[in-house]
Design a protein around this nucleic acid. Structure first.
Lengths: 275, 275
DNA sequence: CGGGTCGTTGACACATTTCAAGTTTAGTGG
DNA sequence: CCACTAAACTTGAAATGTGTCAACGACCCG
């Protein structure tokens, strides 16, 4: 399961910049909504029984399509639903007073956007789409009730939170101790794995991020990201064309930045179990 | 409740450098062990019923005193217990191949050291004491069983993981987008709150970290931390004497770095409720 | 065709690191 | 109690990675 079709991931550039979502759009029939969860990080948790998975599926209240650069929640706001990115890319973002922006997380298809909303009234970060995206919403109250009834669901949320923690810890290591080149390569290695884009030692995946987005993830300026990418391109370490990222030699990229995928805590059994 | 007596926090410098713990030392009678949890972040969770709190307390298997610079778990190792830092300071640390070190978290009295051990077989980071410390251990299996039986316990772990997440997100913002001075001041503001050391606009707390520890938390070199601290000292923004940190004007420090304590998710009711 | 986002380039500034001493401090052993 | 030692802290000079500022170019969509 390589990434989604390219058209879906392309940001729609001249519409709805910085808008906030209003109404659920494109309501689908209930069965379709349930099926939107399939393949999601939440859905494939190995801690869920079949019964628990069904219970979660029945809680989906809406599946909507959202354009690029839309805030799902803003910093300091309250969110009554858990947002799952079924398709497209999104980010969590934090900002300094002076306007410096940092992404503590990038979300790709299947990720949960605002786990914190389960426990906190106000979010410490904003969540925003980076591309056109399909968002599945689960109402917080019903999810919490389910978690109290079903141990597997509660455990799944703890697990999700801890995986986010592990990823964020490695990001901190990159931010604090790695050079620009290492940071960039490390991010690409991470995305390659998370998107399940690897085929032997090669990898290729739809890549909708602008250089500014990358900069916000890596704690660099877009200009320096640009120069660093050019260096990698001219060395043949990466290829970019048609909004597609190509990594011809994954292993040597991993060697450059000391990438070890164990921190992603991929569960190889989960998909197999559900297939 | 200001911080612990100074003697407790001083690292014992010429003993047990880099050693690993062997046996539980100084076993205390059971009642005393239970009471070691009191005041802990886990214990004061507002999601716990009295019954659940007792259940957790009964799971404590050991309370031991550990010298400074001791690994409780090393990177990639397995831990069968949850470690709670009842007294003293500790850190989580990650490293690059080249030896660059980054702390994704600092633990002060009351914090849980290795929540991830609940869900992962291998830890993505090491946990190490920075001072002599008192460590309470809860066996992972029994804790997991409790979490499955008692919704409040399960919910508490999710909550703990999400708070760590929130803190780490703000650390990422510091690492990626703040200057050395801002990072340092922000860390001091955070510690001042977490240690409950503030008295009006002043704050004073035992501070056992070396400048190298600070550097590892902030993604800087110890030398630059030194220069930055001197600058703050000469401006009267901070005072350091006898391993005690004094912040004479907390508000102006917060203004320097844009500190907003909401990300710490302090629960003012929790202590009152238990007092 | 035109406007705007995104990508690219160059020259320069500067925060932070590196390297290489020294000095102070706090425990240790005689 | 003093001398000894290692860790922690301090200082200076020079190197460098990354940021800043200011353009220009390419492309896409309306």
């Amino acid at each position: 399961m390589k990434s989604s079709p390219r058209s879906r991931l392309l940001p729609s550039k001249h519409r709805d910049r910085s808008s906030t979502i209003r109404d659920p759009v494109r309501q689908s029939p209930r069965n379709a909504q349930l099926s939107r969860l399939v393949g999601t990080r939440l859905w494939t948790s190995r801690f869920l029984s079949h019964e628990e998975r069904d219970a979660l599926g029945n809680v989906v209240v809406s599946t909507r399509s959202v354009s690029a650069n839309t805030d799902l929640v803003r910093q300091g706001e309250r969110a009554d639903s858990l947002f799952i990115v079924a398709d497209g890319w999104a980010c969590r973002y934090t900002t300094t007073r002076e306007g410096g922006r940092q992404f503590p997380a990038l979300m790709v298809p299947g990720d949960v956007g605002n786990l914190d909303s389960l426990m906190f009234d106000r979010l410490d970060y904003g969540v925003r789409t980076l591309t056109q995206a399909t968002i599945v919403s689960l109402p917080r109250d019903r999810v919490l009730a389910l978690a109290a009834q079903h141990p597997g669901i509660g455990r799944t949320f703890t697990w999700l939170a801890l995986v986010e923690n592990a990823i964020l810890s490695i990001w901190a290591l990159s931010l604090g101790r790695r050079s620009a080149k290492e940071r960039l390569v490390h991010l690409l290695c991470e995305l390659s794995v998370r998107l399940d884009a690897e085929d032997g030692n090669e990898s290729s995946f739809a890549f909708p991020l602008t250089q500014e987005h990358i900069a916000d993830a890596l704690g660099l300026t877009n200009i320096h990201v640009n120069r660093t990418m050019q260096q990698l391109r001219s060395n043949g370490m990466i290829g970019t064309a048609n909004r597609t990222m190509t990594l011809p030699d994954v292993q040597s990229l991993r060697d450059i930045c000391g990438f070890d995928l164990s921190y992603l805590h991929i569960q190889p059994s989960a998909e197999a179990q559900l297939a």
